[in-house]
Computed example of a mutant assay.
Amino acid sequence: MKKFFSFLILAFVTSAIALAQNNSEHMTFKGVPIDGTLNEFVDKMKQARFTYIGTHDGIAVLQGDFAGHKGCTIGVYTLKSSNKVNTIAVMFPPQKDWSSLESTYVSLKSMLTEKYGEPSECVEMFHDALQPDRDFEKFHKLKYKECTWDTTFR
């Protein structure tokens, strides 16, 4: 179950699509431009002290620290047609309660908004018409995939 909650934060962090912000400036992840081939990006991430875990179905997996959180899992995705890196996803270590998850989410969203501007997409909702009031109810909804918290920066 711990693994399950670590992947739920995946929805947040970043489907950071590496489209050029202008002709020469790309988004970066930990100072590494989000561009080039998968192997080139992985090599740069290794130099930035991330541990390469492996590649599965064209997705490179690394581990390291991100935004003050230790032991994050990083997924690096490419465009299938060109093997160019276009998406970085961060899975944070498991959290045990809604307030911790929400605090992490809000903090990271604020940090990325400051860096990249307003998100291109943002969905933060519980799927039921009846909205939960208490943290344990919200956490329960999350556990059973009855909510969506997803922010994308382009």
Rank of each mutant, 00 (worst) to 15 (best):
M1W: 15
K2W: 07
K3G: 06
F4D: 10
L8G: 04
L10N: 11
A18R: 10
N22F: 14
S24Q: 14
E25K: 12
H26Y: 11
H26L: 05
H26Q: 10
H26K: 10
T28D: 10
F29M: 12
K30M: 07
G31T: 15
G31D: 14
V32F: 14
P33A: 13
D35I: 10
D35S: 12
D35H: 15
G36W: 14
N39R: 15
F41N: 08
V42L: 07
M45Q: 12
M45G: 04
Q47G: 07
R49I: 05
F50A: 08
T51C: 06
Y52Q: 00
I53V: 08
G54A: 01
V61K: 12
D65Q: 11
F66Q: 02
F66D: 04
A67N: 12
G68E: 04
K70R: 13
G71Y: 13
C72V: 01
T73W: 10
I74F: 07
I74M: 13
G75A: 09
N83W: 08
K84D: 09
N86L: 03
P93S: 11
P93E: 06
W98V: 00
W98E: 00
S99V: 03
S100L: 02
L108P: 05
S110K: 15
L112G: 03
L112F: 12
E114I: 00
E114Y: 07
E118R: 15
S120P: 09
V123E: 13
M125H: 08
M125K: 09
F126W: 02
D128N: 08
A129H: 06
Q131K: 03
P132E: 07
D133I: 02
D135M: 04
F139A: 00
Y144F: 08
Y144L: 06
C147K: 03
T148D: 06
W149R: 02
W149H: 02
D150W: 07
T151L: 06
T151I: 07
T152R: 03
F153H: 09
